[in-house]
Design a protein around this nucleic acid. Structure first.
Length: 231
DNA sequence: GTTGAGCGTT
């Protein structure tokens, strides 16, 4: 029975948004409403959800009617354990009413209710309010870092190994420095030399001259041949 | 069914 965020922002004329972080993925607006409503007049609660899956993203926005109440809620609910998890309550930086806060009405470090020592410093990051972060975060979420990292590591290792292989030929580099043509010639020479080797097993050729050259063998051979001398 | 730094819908 919560029409919060059902049809967009209801009335954000005089509301102050709070950002609730570190909430469980199962926590809904209904669960937060009573908790936050206890400390003030909650106008609306909005929990961003994934468009595809519709799952909660782990944070919510609570709009208060009055700033002092919002500040109070921040001081009282920040660090409160909800559903077995410690939530983080702080003023929302961006949003429809964020400008109001920035205008001078409310300052992050100017709580009229008093100065709470326990108010953790809000990590005021630079203006990196780009959707890029969101995508990045989303991407990082759900996906297993371990898995991806492992995969990357394997790739990296392979790449490094190959790199080393390449790097382990300084002599070649030196000798090739001036004799590039030589290298080319040598390549050709090798090509010719390998020519017989490639065509030496003729048997299969006669078996199927052009219909189906043992699938995979032909391209594989070519691929390797073209890559080895080239690099 | 999992996850965990962050900033939002018509």
């Amino acid at each position: 029975m919560s029409h919060f965020g059902r049809s967009g922002p209801p009335d954000i004329s005089d509301t102050y948004s709070l950002l609730i972080l570190n909430i469980t993925f199962r926590t809904t607006a209904d669960d937060l409403f009573p908790l936050f409503d206890k400390y003030g007049k909650v106008v609306d609660i909005f929990i961003p959800k994934d468009r595809r899956t519709g799952d909660s993203r782990g944070f919510a926005f609570v709009r208060y009617k009055y700033a002092d109440e919002a500040q109070k809620a921040v001081d009282r609910l920040d660090g409160r354990v909800v559903d077995g998890r410690e939530i983080t309550v702080q003023f929302a930086k961006y949003g429809p009413n964020a400008e109001r806060i920035h205008k001078g009405r409310i300052v992050e470090s100017a709580p009229r209710s008093g100065h709470r020592s326990r108010s953790r410093s809000p990590r005021r990051r630079h203006r990196d309010d780009h959707y890029r972060d969101r995508d990045y975060r989303r991407s990082r979420s759900r996906s297993h870092d371990r898995y991806e990292r492992d995969r990357y590591r394997g790739k990296d290792k392979d790449s490094r190994r190959r790199s080393r292989s390449r790097s382990a030929s300084p002599d070649y580099s030196k000798g090739r420095g001036r004799g590039r043509y030589d290298d080319d010639r040598r390549s050709v020479s090798r090509s010719i030399s390998a020519s017989p080797a490639r065509c030496s097993p003729s048997p299969r050729k006669s078996t199927s001259p052009r219909k189906s050259p043992p699938r995979g063998e032909s391209p594989d051979r070519r691929s390797r041949d073209g890559r080895s001398p080239s690099r």
